[in-house]
């Protein structure tokens, strides 16, 4: 475990049992942000924030959806206001709340600095998240990038829009490295598990060594190579 803080054991922490017999812990910080989310935009008040740039990721079918609204000072390029809405589990709500706090503290973060926020940074501030929940903090990071891209487009800075250069791994099914990253985040750890979700490499076995390499790479990135 190198990438995440180990949650402290404390009787106040929420212990949730999953439906397959395991338990996990939420840190007190996660609980605090879950029960008292900061900077939320209440449903029905969206019209007041029309002028803000906006980023949306996920869908209710995936189980997580986030929308982030940003007000950016065009002179300093600092984020001076940030609002959000999240459909998702406790850690998804807490991650977005913590992200909004990080963006606004010390007079607001510049967008260049904001774009450098990694999922691990949010997790560290939350005093850790259970492995299978890392997924949730990554969504916050992606919503932020989408909202900043929106601002680049609104302000005509099209050259600064960040497009992720996805690399096609399985030419038959047109599966990219991002798709593999997604399923590793969803908990797949072996080629077999990745294939169960993606069928990647089934029709093009020559791509399997590269797929295995990517699984190792992303497992290490998000789970510290356990």
């Amino acid at each position: 475990m190198t990438t995440q803080a180990t949650p402290k054991t404390n009787s106040d922490e929420a212990k949730i049992r999953d439906n397959q017999g395991g338990t996990w812990l939420y840190s007190n910080t996660v609980k605090e942000h879950f029960f008292n989310p900061r900077n939320i935009l209440k449903a029905g008040e969206e019209a007041q924030y029309e002028s803000y740039s906006k980023g949306r990721v996920g869908s209710p079918a995936c189980g997580d959806e986030m929308v982030l609204w940003l007000k950016i000072d065009p002179e300093t390029e600092k984020i001076i206001d940030c609002k959000w809405q999240t459909f998702g589990c406790g850690s998804a709500i807490a991650s977005t709340s913590m992200l909004s706090v990080m963006l606004l503290e010390n007079g607001g973060m510049t967008i260049d600095a904001a774009l450098k926020i990694k999922p691990q940074d949010i997790m560290r501030r939350l005093e850790g998240l259970p492995n299978r929940k890392i997924h949730c903090s990554v969504l916050g990071d992606k919503a932020l990038q989408a909202a900043i891209n929106d601002w680049f487009r609104i302000t005509g800075k099209h050259d600064r829009v960040i497009t992720q250069g996805a690399k096609v791994i399985d030419p038959i099914l047109h599966i990219t490295d991002h798709d593999i990253e997604e399923v590793v985040l969803e908990g797949a750890k072996t080629l077999e598990e990745v294939q169960k979700k993606l069928k990647v490499g089934v029709a093009s076995p020559e791509s399997i060594p590269e797929i295995e390499q990517l699984i190792r790479f992303y497992s290490e990135k998000y789970y510290g190579g356990e």
């Binding site: 929420a14 949730i16 939420y26 879950f34 209710p60 459909f87 998702g88 589990c89 406790g90 998804a92």
Partner: peptide
């Protein structure tokens, strides 16, 4: 609808 089960569960547990 519009809310997620685990978030509900966590709240109810409280």
């Amino acid at each position: 609808l519009d809310v997620e089960g685990e978030a509900l569960l966590l709240y109810l547990d409280e």
